[in-house]
Simulated scan of single mutants.
Amino acid sequence: MAIELIEGDTNPGKVKIGIVASRWNSMITDKMLEGALNALKGNGIAENDITVVRCPGSYEIPLTVQKLLEHREVSGVVALGVVIRGGTPHFEYVCDAVNRGITDLILKHNKPISFGVLTTDDVKQALERAGDKGNKGGEAALALLEMISMEQNLIS
């Protein structure tokens, strides 16, 4: 008996994609959003099949993703934001809340949500991850496409 291997790729066919991007630290999240849009369009996703929703900050991402999933027909969502460590425990609280919120939504709605929320020690690290040394927004978009494709292959 042979091992069955089920994988996805970045070409899931005709799908609708949601993107939630925070405006806080927009000099970083705007680059990540651009990277995500370029990755999606570069893999055959039409502009009219992409919905972008901007929210104030990373803490608001889970609720915004939930509203998007409830009110728009999307195959999955890319969540984009950035939390930069400061001198208070605020960093840990926000990171934990966003991570837990996204995880809960994946399981509740049974749809893939890619986690493109940067958690960095400083602005320099965030800028590097938003374009100077790769674009985590683009990587998150590709991961979402692969998850959608994998799911299609799994259930077909």
Rank of each mutant, 00 (worst) to 15 (best):
K124A: 07
G131V: 03
C55N: 09
V83G: 13
I106Q: 10
K136F: 06
L80A: 07
G44S: 14
G131I: 00
R54L: 02
G8S: 09
L80G: 04
E4T: 12
I84L: 11
W24D: 00
E60A: 11
L69N: 08
R129T: 05
G76I: 08
I106T: 12
L37W: 00
S58H: 06
K41Y: 01
D9K: 10
G137S: 03
L144P: 14
V123H: 05
K124L: 11
R129I: 04
N38W: 00
G13Q: 12
L68C: 05
F91W: 08
N38S: 15
N110T: 05
E47L: 11
I148K: 01
L142E: 07
P62W: 03
V123F: 12
D121I: 05
L144F: 07
E70I: 08
G138E: 03
K67R: 14
G86P: 13
S26M: 03
E73V: 10
K31V: 01
I45A: 06
G116H: 03
E4A: 15
I45H: 02
A141F: 11
D30P: 11
I6S: 07
I17E: 04
L145H: 08
Q152W: 02
E60T: 06
L145A: 09
G35W: 02
G138I: 07
A126W: 03
K16D: 09
N38V: 00
S26I: 12
V83R: 06
R23E: 12
L145G: 08
V82N: 04
T29Q: 06
E146W: 05
L80T: 08
M150Q: 06
E7A: 14
L154Y: 13
I84V: 15
Q152H: 15
I113N: 08
G138Y: 03
A143D: 14
E146P: 15
L40V: 15
Q152T: 12
G44C: 14
V65D: 00
L118K: 09
E60P: 11
D132G: 02
P12M: 07
S75Y: 05
P62Q: 13
N11I: 01
D132K: 13
M147L: 10
E70R: 05
R23P: 00
C95L: 08
S156I: 11
V82D: 03
S114A: 15
V123T: 15
E146L: 01
K133P: 00
R23F: 01
F115T: 09
G81N: 04
H90P: 13
E151Q: 12
A21S: 15
A2P: 15
N153A: 07
R23K: 15
L105E: 01
K14Y: 01
E146C: 08
L33P: 05
T119V: 12
K111D: 04
N11S: 15
P112E: 08
I19C: 09
L5S: 10
E146T: 13
V20T: 04
K16W: 05
K111T: 09
M150Y: 15
R85A: 12
I61N: 11
N43E: 04
V74N: 02
K111Y: 08
M32N: 10
V78A: 09
I102M: 03
V20L: 02
T120D: 05
L144E: 12
E7D: 13
L68A: 07
E146V: 00
I61W: 00
N43C: 13
T10N: 08
L80P: 10
N110P: 00
G137C: 05
K124I: 14
G81L: 04
R72I: 00
R72G: 01
A140C: 13
I19N: 02
